[in-house]
């Protein structure tokens, strides 16, 4: 039994670090919490998260869960939530949790709040702050009912500390044969990259429309990212034009990042892009238009042609 159940996300049998940030929201909410992981052959992953102060790590381990198919996953997650008698089900925001948790919420007859940024107290009751309209508004939301489902913006909650006493790992038993079977996994694009994950990188370099093609994009944006040991991001315009893969998109409808250093190359600063970067500590903008909106929020701005500036910048960094 736990008051809060935190769904932890795996990527090829390993725990995705941003998904651990939801534990911090569970701690702020108070009461005990259990961690839940689903997959096939996930004992090692379960072992890696026993020290985050949870009451238990619940493991649903079965070949039927080898791929994160929403119908099965939501069914198992809803069953585990009921079995725990949990009042809250949470996870860090990601395409995985956004796919699976609203479905689980419906199975649990519960409302859901997406992208929680912080807790608030209103008239003695807990309320949730969340962004709306591409981050141009900050809403405070209250939830009625016995149970609610939440996703937390990983960038708004710190990484929890891993020095709790080791907790128990409990098998969550379910009937695999009775799971829904109308969705099949076909394939997943495998892209080997030595670069850090966009969501976790200390430095992110992103490129926009003027990068022209994937070769120029890789040479300039990728080159600068590599000089800094950073990850690569892109605007929607760059992704739509085929310069960068879809999962590089940063913004309202892509990924939200908050690195120490964000460098925007040839990016105008549309509100939908800024929604994904505004909590970065330092923002550098390089743009040839002195009036580009991005300069209104950049820590450092450099006006000029990126095709000239970026090679110089790479060389200067390599010298330091």
């Amino acid at each position: 039994m736990a008051e809060t159940l935190v769904l932890i996300e795996l990527d090829r049998q390993r725990v995705k670090r941003p998904s651990l940030h939801a534990i911090t929201l569970a701690q702020q909410l108070g009461g005990d919490y259990a961690l839940l992981i689903l997959g096939s052959g996930v004992a090692e992953a379960a072992n890696s998260i026993i020290s985050y102060g949870a009451a238990a790590v619940l493991v649903a381990d079965d070949p039927a869960l080898a791929e994160p198919l929403a119908d099965r996953y939501a069914s198992v997650i809803a069953q585990a939530t009921r079995q725990q008698g949990a009042k809250r089900l949470l996870a860090s925001s990601s395409t995985f949790s956004k796919d699976v948790l609203p479905r689980a919420a419906a199975l649990l007859d519960a409302p859901m709040v997406t992208d929680v940024l912080a807790l608030a107290k209103v008239d003695g009751a807990i309320a949730y702050q969340r962004p709306m309209n591409a981050g141009s508004k900050l809403a405070t939301v209250k939830v009625d009912g016995e149970l609610c489902v939440l996703t937390a913006r990983a960038t708004a909650f710190a990484m929890p500390s891993a020095n709790g006493a080791p907790c128990l790992i409990a098998t969550f038993a379910f009937d695999a044969a009775s799971l829904p079977n109308e969705m099949q996994f076909v394939s997943r694009e495998l892209r080997a990259s030595d670069r850090p994950d966009l969501a976790e990188a200390r430095v992110v370099v992103s490129g926009g429309r003027p990068l022209k093609d994937s070769e120029t994009f890789e040479r300039l944006v990728g080159g600068l990212a590599d000089a800094l040991g950073g990850a690569v991001g892109a605007t929607r315009a760059a992704v739509d034009a085929g310069m960068a893969p879809n999962d590089y998109q940063v913004g309202q409808t892509g990924k939200v990042v908050a690195p120490e250093l964000y460098i925007a190359l040839g990016i105008s600063g549309a509100i939908q892009h800024l929604a994904g970067i505004k909590d970065s500590r330092i923002i550098v903008a390089i743009n040839k238009d002195a009036d580009a909106p991005i300069f209104q929020m950049a820590t450092y701005g450099l006006v000029g042609d990126l095709h000239q500036i970026v090679p110089q910048l790479i060389a200067a960094i390599q010298k330091t």
Partner: peptide, 14 residues
């Protein structure tokens, strides 16, 4: 079941 109690402008970067 969810009610928006208030809507504010988030802090802006300068």
């Amino acid at each position: 079941l969810t009610t928006t109690l208030s809507v504010a402008s988030p802090p802006r970067r300068t």
